[in-house]
Design a binder for these strands. Structure first.
Lengths: 136, 136
DNA sequence: GTCTTGGTTTAGACATAGTCTATTCACCGT
DNA sequence: ACGGTGAATAGACTATGTCTAAACCAAGAC
């Protein structure tokens, strides 16, 4: 399905600016910040304003196409991966990696007295290990 | 042990301003922000500057007396609880609660390919349940 | 074709979190 | 009293994010 129809299905009028923002953020792997999206989108659409990018990102969040995550100091990051998953943060570079939901198991959250847990995630911090050399 | 000696033990010259900041933040239960600490400390020490509060908080973090946590949008919060623990965030009020380390168990983090996990915590979100009425 | 209308985009003002700098202040040893 | 070291202060500065008012644009009514 093309992006234009995907926006329309969620009740979002597809404009060139919104398409540019959505095209980038919905396929981003690096958990961009709003100003990161702005910078990137301006390469293709140099007249786009900051307000439009912020408005569009918030709109995409309200419509459930992307999520925000509080993982960096001082700024929110956007994540096109809307299903539950965990995050690993490289303490050297600040890079954020998605960890699949089923890679980790958390127990005990259902029996916490006085807390009605609706969602949770594990935040891991450490160093990215060099990928093991692939055998030919 | 009194606070003054505690600061000195960590190589921090105790000044009235630093004592006021430390006295508050080291016993705070509500995970205050820097500006929250400023506001509170000014009640007792109205001439204290923003820079001093920020400097002191950062100093206490560097010396290991408190920690920062990235749990709120747009701002860091301070936590006097320096040992590993988890956090529950009330989605209605934004209040943050500490969850003891042993209340939850996470498995799978040791076998993640390509990630050298040094620390982790679980972030839970939901609603605080009314405390069960205490029997007299 | 022109007018109107509703939603969109824009620039810039505003708000808040946090850092930095230059000056002033306070304490200590001489 | 004097000088020096570190701390505190006010205010400038940067960055993230929101808000507002005006300009813009596309679609339908005439």
């Amino acid at each position: 399905m093309n992006l234009q129809d995907q926006l329309r299905e969620h009740g979002i009028q597809p404009t060139p600016q919104r398409l540019a923002v959505a095209a980038y953020v919905m396929h981003a792997r690096e958990h961009p910040t709003a100003d990161g999206v702005l910078e990137r989108v301006r390469k293709q659409c140099p007249t786009v304003s900051r307000a439009t990018v912020y408005n569009t990102l918030n709109l995409l969040v309200r419509k459930g196409l992307i999520r925000t995550q509080v993982l960096k100091e001082g700024t929110v990051v956007f994540d096109p991966h809307v299903e539950s998953h965990h995050h690993f943060i490289d303490t050297d570079t600040g890079s954020i990696y998605d960890i699949p939901w089923h890679a980790l198991t958390v127990s005990g959250h259902a029996t916490l007295r006085g807390f009605d847990v609706q969602e949770y995630q594990v935040i891991l911090r450490g160093k990215r290990r060099a990928a093991r050399p692939r055998r030919r």
